[in-house]
């Protein structure tokens, strides 16, 4: 099949970008979206042009590296899917496809579709961990954790840090990302000890990175490849409010 692409091209952080048009022929519906871009890049090389830069790595939906706005939607038209798992059978022959990077003030564009998501790392650094140094751990079965609790913690821990939640949010809020981590850790007995300190630090860091606040439009849950529930945002708020009230 044949597609008309309009792709965001930008030299570096400082420069202004623009949409550039490409026509790609000979696309098979079995290709993944990224393989379609590979195909285009291969042809750009043949023409002596600079390839379209995009982040990608595992190509099986788990590393969280890939991510772009495709036709105005984070990770493309399907819900709960990463860009690498999107296949060309989701597009029609002759369609025009707009491809842009995830946009947010906290996600500056490095080049073309590559963005800097280190804000997420900084949020985790501010407290998204359990302080258990190697060697301190007790026997693993000494603290039983209910099956449902573990499963609930897993649901939150499943976040792959791709940034689609921020990209699709009208406020560029990182609330789903941050709350998923807070939920994951606070649900487990091991993570409860540091809960109050953690939530205050992480929420503050979210602001410091320049992410907006959450206005509960719930778009993030729809676009999240791991379908992480917005209720975690509720739990983050609960933890935050509790910490504010109980703070000495």
């Amino acid at each position: 099949m044949k597609l008309y692409l309009k792709v965001w091209r930008q030299e570096n952080r400082e420069s202004k970008g623009d949409m550039v048009s490409y026509v790609v022929e000979g696309i098979s519906e079995h290709m993944s979206f990224l393989e379609m871009l590979d195909l285009l890049n291969e042809r750009l090389i043949q023409k002596g042009e600079r390839v379209i830069e995009f982040d990608h790595d595992c190509r099986e939906g788990i590393c969280g590296a890939c991510g772009m706005m495709i036709n105005g939607r984070a990770h493309g038209p399907l819900s709960g899917t990463t860009t690498c798992q999107l296949h060309m059978r989701s597009f029609k022959d002759g369609e025009t496809v707009y491809i842009e990077p995830f946009r947010a003030a906290a996600f500056p564009v490095l080049r073309d579709l590559k963005i800097d998501r280190s804000g997420f790392d900084h949020i985790i650094q501010s407290g998204g961990y359990i302080s258990a140094s190697t060697g301190q751990a007790p026997e693993s079965n000494s603290i039983p954790i209910a099956h449902e609790t573990t499963e609930a913690a897993f649901d939150a821990a499943a976040c792959i840090g791709c940034g689609a939640c921020v990209a699709t949010c009208k406020n560029s809020s990182a609330a789903l990302f941050t709350s998923a981590k807070i939920s994951h850790l606070v649900l487990l007995p091991q993570g409860k000890l540091e809960a109050a300190d953690r939530v205050i630090k992480m929420v503050s860091q979210m602001d410091a990175e320049g992410f907006g606040h959450c206005s509960n439009t719930e778009a993030c849950e729809v676009e999240c490849p791991q379908e992480i529930s917005v209720l975690h945002i509720g739990r983050m708020n609960y933890q935050y409010n509790k910490a504010l009230i109980l703070k000495k």
Binding site: I130, A137, P138, H147, A157, H184, L188
Partner: peptide, 14 residues
Amino acid sequence: DQAVAQGVPFAREY
């Protein structure tokens, strides 16, 4: 033990 202490949600029985 180490992974559980870090909060890795390994599968558990009821």
